[in-house]
């Protein structure tokens, strides 16, 4: 969109599943709050779904000045055509200067469709956002090429400036129930809600309790595990730590674990509080998916393994000696805590 004069305010796209607001919505507000304060403008969150009207106050408690809600029975599930139609109408009516979403499967689907419809740029999967003081433009920094380079990208002439932000790259602001804000419920004619998509079912991935990309802790195993049965060690450790299970491509290729658990260039990108790499050499393609984790711990028998270059704590040793012992000690530790 070029030519319109006043684009003002920072917007974030909220997400919900089954009428519950997802935590990524609050992470985005943490990013958005900082940008809005630098620009001295309002921060608004947009959320589309059904049964949300009572819950959207939470977005205000977590940093939004305004919430736009579109609430309709046909919006329970994400439908790209309806959602993009609604977002296009909202953006055209209220003209925000910045619009950010989470780089989830929904954000990565809806934002390119929306940016194309509006005619503006979109930067993918950012890990850094800032305001350029001289111009007030959004500086969008993202990893590319397997994490080998970082690029800072601007959308100099088009508005809104749009970006998706890597999930878990920021903590939500703490809840402040004294915050005041405005909730605006938007309604559209019935034909707005007609969709070419029909969502028939949602099936949970039975092997992972916590979705990999949302987990605070990821315990990942590689070829060093040497077999499917040994991979149980990884599952056990993950369970004890309350984390999700990850894997290198080699482990997935061997059939020890399914592809949704693969971390890396051709798998998932994760940035948990703790990434635990066990029997993983640390190939650049694997690092591409986990190197921005807050803390990295590695166990490997090869002192020269590349993973040791990127870890905060590395143990050189045989995983088959260390991991079972660690599991035992963690069990004791938990018992000890339980018994005071």
């Amino acid at each position: 969109m070029i030519g319109k004069e006043v684009f003002k305010g920072v917007w974030t796209l909220g997400e919900q599943r089954d009428g519950e607001i997802s935590s990524v919505s609050y992470e985005l507000l943490s990013w958005g709050r900082e940008l809005a304060d630098k620009l001295n403008v309002e921060l608004s969150s947009v959320i589309i779904g059904y049964g949300l009207k009572e819950k959207v106050k939470e977005l205000i408690y977590r940093g939004a000045d305004k919430v736009y809600v579109v609430d309709h029975p046909s919006l329970v599930h994400f439908k790209p055509d309806v959602y993009s139609r609604i977002l296009e109408a909202l953006v055209k009516e209220f003209s925000p200067e910045i619009f950010i979403a989470s780089a989830t499967t929904m954000g990565r689907t809806i934002m390119p469709i929306l940016a194309t419809r509006i005619g503006t740029g979109l930067t993918a999967d950012c890990t850094g956002l800032d305001i350029e003081p001289e111009t007030g433009l959004l500086l969008q920094t993202r990893p590319a090429i397997g994490g080998n380079v970082m690029a800072t990208i601007k959308t100099p002439k088009h508005k809104p400036q749009m970006a998706t932000v890597r999930p878990r790259s920021r903590k939500p602001l703490s809840k402040d129930t004294s915050r005041k804000g405005e909730v605006i419920v938007k309604e559209y004619p019935e034909e707005f809600y007609l969709s070419k998509f029909k969502i028939l079912d949602f099936v949970k991935d039975e092997t992972s309790q916590t979705p990999l990309q949302e987990a605070d802790i990821v315990v990942a195993g590689g070829k060093g595990l040497k077999g499917e049965r040994n991979f149980r060690l990884i599952h056990e450790l993950a369970q004890l730590l309350g984390g999700a299970v990850g894997a290198s491509r080699s482990a997935v290729d061997m059939g020890w674990i399914s592809y949704p658990h693969q971390v890396g260039l051709s798998g998932k990108t994760v940035a948990p509080k703790l990434y635990f790499a066990i029997g993983i050499s640390g190939a650049v393609q694997h690092l591409a998916g986990m190197s921005s984790s807050e803390t990295i711990v590695a166990i490997n028998s090869d002192p020269e393994a590349n993973i040791f270059k990127v870890c905060d704590l590395g143990i050189v040793g045989d995983l088959f000696e260390i991991v079972p012992l660690l599991i035992e000690r963690l069990r004791e530790y938990k018992e000890g805590k339980k018994n005071g």
Binding site: M150, A151, T152, I153, K154, T155
Partner: peptide, 14 residues
């Protein structure tokens, strides 16, 4: 609409 304005190499080593 987008423009790459800066490229840099992340320091992986910790």
């Amino acid at each position: 609409p987008t423009r790459v304005v800066k490229i840099f190499y992340p320091k992986l080593s910790r």
